[in-house]
């Protein structure tokens, strides 16, 4: 049992090590928001002329090819009812909106380091291209791996250490900090 759980603990780490590192490093950058700002580094706005009778899909495709726009697509509606095409990837957001019959407005925002880290940390959802599907799968695997680390870790410590006093103190410290914080939130909020 001990050897099996040790192997599970170890191989779970091997499978999600890079993703877990990414989540904890990007999370660290996010909690240091005052140092790593998330504002856009550059914003460029340009208006491109298009053929009047072209379909919207063809127009968007042509603009994407011309400006080399890549990213996960999401379509929203503007206040005047027109479709707005958003292409996002970490630290990058392109917005394409048909403003008139013969023009498309393209707004491209490039983010700072803080914004790239924030976008990596928050990327989720089983939708989009195959990379997003694999990403979402790795996201879930990382969460499950964390649960496995926590439980198998406690088991392995329990089996490994003869004198459990120090370990119990650390586990208690974790419990007290968490319970105190939850109760404190209930008290003051």
């Amino acid at each position: 049992m001990y050897t099996t759980l040790r192997k599970i603990h170890l191989y779970c780490c091997f499978i999600v090590a890079t993703f877990l590192l990414m989540y904890f490093v990007t999370g660290g950058v996010m909690v240091m928001e005052s140092v790593f700002h998330r504002k856009s580094k550059h914003t460029t706005v340009q208006t491109l002329a298009i053929e009047r009778n072209e379909s919207e899909q063809k127009v968007i495709q042509a603009v994407r090819s011309k400006l080399d726009i890549e990213g996960r697509l999401r379509i929203t509606k503007s206040s005047d009812g027109n479709s707005v095409y958003h292409f996002r990837r970490p630290g990058y957001h392109a917005e394409l909106a048909r403003t008139k019959e013969d023009s498309v407005q393209v707004t491209i925002r490039e983010g700072t380091f803080g914004s790239v880290m924030n976008d990596f940390h928050r990327l989720r959802g089983y939708e989009g291209t195959w990379t997003h599907m694999v990403w979402a799968c790795m996201y879930d695997l990382s969460c499950v791996a964390l649960l496995i680390f926590a439980f198998t870790g406690v088991y392995l410590w329990w089996k490994l250490e003869r004198n459990k006093k120090t370990g119990v103190i650390f586990l208690l410290a974790s419990t007290v900090t968490t319970v105190f914080t939850v109760l404190y939130i209930y008290q003051v909020c």
Partner: peptide
């Protein structure tokens, strides 16, 4: 070992909330 034990609840919360 001890660092892991100190993080026990945080890991659970982080995983469930994610």
């Amino acid at each position: 070992l001890y660092g892991g034990l100190l993080c026990f609840w945080y890991l659970l919360i982080f995983a469930f909330s994610s």
